[in-house]
């Protein structure tokens, strides 16, 4: 019996065969149309349905500490959206000030960013939902109070995102992973110790929930040498500035 199964599997090993093994998710997804927003990280793209962030849907980033790299994870996609779409990128109640010089250095068009500071959880949910469903935002990032996020609210936000064709991202604490959510994609972020000798920055991404697959741990996202990334985003860095940027690291 086992031998026959092996035989069958061997016969269908090549891509495009009618039989596929669930563990080859990446290979299967590769055959799908890649309609997602490219994350800018090849390993992550391979693990995601539609090979990128959902273009119209809700996702969650779960992490306990601020500043682990959650913004840099999204930056490549935000750069792409701000360059190609003439819609807002809404930031609903971020915990700190999104720092304009750094955002611009990363290549994000500041004119497309809309900073919304609602008072209270009800207003915050309303503002995010409004931003999503009007279709006036290509992306919306929300830091909503956990108390306001029950299942029906999350479901409503997911529907609003789909309706307005917006990529919605909610930032939530790690323990929220235990609660059910209407988000189609949920990622847990945790830090990885820097690799000596180079203080390169890495982030461990664990997929808690994804469409077309099951939870998956162990994706490692490495951020490019920051000064290089900043240089790449600019059009024509002069050698002097490149040298200056490199020296500071």
């Amino acid at each position: 019996m086992a031998a026959r199964v092996e035989q069958l599997l061997d016969a269908n090993a090549e891509p495009g065969a009618e039989l596929w093994r669930a563990r080859d998710f990446a290979r299967v997804v590769a055959g799908q149309r890649s309609s997602g927003i490219a994350t800018g990280f090849a390993d992550l793209d391979a693990a995601l349905f539609e090979r990128g962030w959902p273009r119209a849907g809700l996702m969650e980033l779960l992490s306990d500490a601020a500043g682990l790299g959650e913004l840099r994870l999204l930056t490549p996609a935000l750069v792409m959206l701000s360059a190609t779409e003439n819609r807002w990128i809404a930031w609903v109640d971020p915990p700190f000030v999104p720092y304009a010089p750094a955002l611009e250095a990363a290549g994000i068009d500041l004119g497309k960013l809309l900073l919304i500071r609602p008072e209270g959880e009800r207003e915050a949910v309303w503002a995010l939902e409004q931003a999503l469903k009007t279709g006036a935002c290509s992306a919306a990032l929300g830091w909503l109070p956990e108390a306001g996020l029950d299942f029906s609210t999350l479901r409503r936000l997911a529907i609003a995102a789909r309706q307005g064709g917006a990529w919605a991202t909610l930032f939530r604490p790690a323990h929220a992973a235990r609660r059910a959510s209407g988000a189609e994609l949920r990622l847990r972020l945790s830090p990885l110790p820097p690799l000596p000798p180079l203080p390169s920055e890495r982030l461990h991404v664990e997929i808690v929930k994804r469409p077309g697959g099951w939870p998956l741990a162990g994706i490692e996202v490495g951020f490019a040498e920051p000064s290089d990334a900043a240089m790449l985003a600019r059009e024509e860095p002069t050698p002097a500035q490149a040298a200056c940027g490199g020296a500071s690291e």
Partner: peptide
């Protein structure tokens, strides 16, 4: 999606409910 009219509309709606101070854009 994404017509400039709906972008302005969103800003109007947000300002009407949240107040002028609550809706900002960033600049350098």
């Amino acid at each position: 999606n994404g017509s400039s009219a709906s972008c302005a509309e969103l800003v109007d709606q947000l300002i009407a409910r949240l107040g002028t101070e609550a809706v900002r854009v960033l600049a350098i």
